[in-house]
């Protein structure tokens, strides 16, 4: 069957107002976010974090299904991936990726929303890595994994990750969900 057939099916499904259809789509995108986040992980030794490509599905979820869905997909899908191997990043990821999905779903021009979401992700991780984690690390040693200098180094891979996520998310949204 051609991909156009699937595109039609997917569009039909998202046009349904059923709550079950929303649950199914959000669960599928959250699962795909977790898988793609785990699939390509490049460790960034400076911050003990990692580069990944999971943002594609978070931004797609926001653009396609709206801010609430983007928030759930970003917060849940990415935190599940962080639980495996990088649990100390769960609080940061839950907040930052959730916010990224939420911003991607804002009712503004899609390109602007995707880019804004990427900026929120980069800025959010910078704030956590440069200020919140070092501050928490003074009281709870588990969080003493990064410094403001290390957070500066991580800006570049995070920016590449954000741009790749925005471009990929927009491309996917255009190919499968754009009704125009």
């Amino acid at each position: 069957m051609s991909s156009k057939f699937y595109q039609k099916e997917i569009r039909k499904m998202t046009s349904q107002k059923s709550k079950f259809a929303q649950t199914a789509l959000i669960s599928a995108l959250a699962a795909l976010t977790a898988v793609t986040t785990i699939m390509v992980r490049v460790p960034i030794p400076a911050t003990n974090g990692y580069f990944n490509i999971g943002d594609v599905f978070i931004i797609l979820a926001g653009l396609w299904l709206g801010p609430k869905a983007g928030l759930i997909v970003g917060a849940v899908g990415s935190s599940v991936a962080d639980a495996v191997g990088f649990p100390v990043y769960i609080p940061a990821t839950f907040a930052v990726k959730g916010l990224e999905g939420l911003v991607a779903g804002l009712p503004i021009k899609k390109t602007v929303a995707a880019l804004l979401a990427a900026i929120v992700m980069v800025a959010g991780y910078y704030v956590f890595e440069a200020f919140i984690y070092p501050m928490l690390g003074n009281r709870i040693p588990m969080f003493a994994i990064t410094t403001p200098e290390a957070a500066l180094i991580a800006l570049l891979p995070n920016a590449v990750q954000g741009i790749a996520g925005a471009v990929g998310g927009l491309a996917l949204w255009h190919s499968i969900a754009n009704k125009k």
Partner: peptide, 16 residues
């Protein structure tokens, strides 16, 4: 990514 979306979403209407 594209293949995973198509194959993931294929049975969803039936499940719903």
């Amino acid at each position: 990514v594209y293949a995973s979306i198509i194959l993931t979403f294929e049975p969803i209407p039936a499940m719903v």
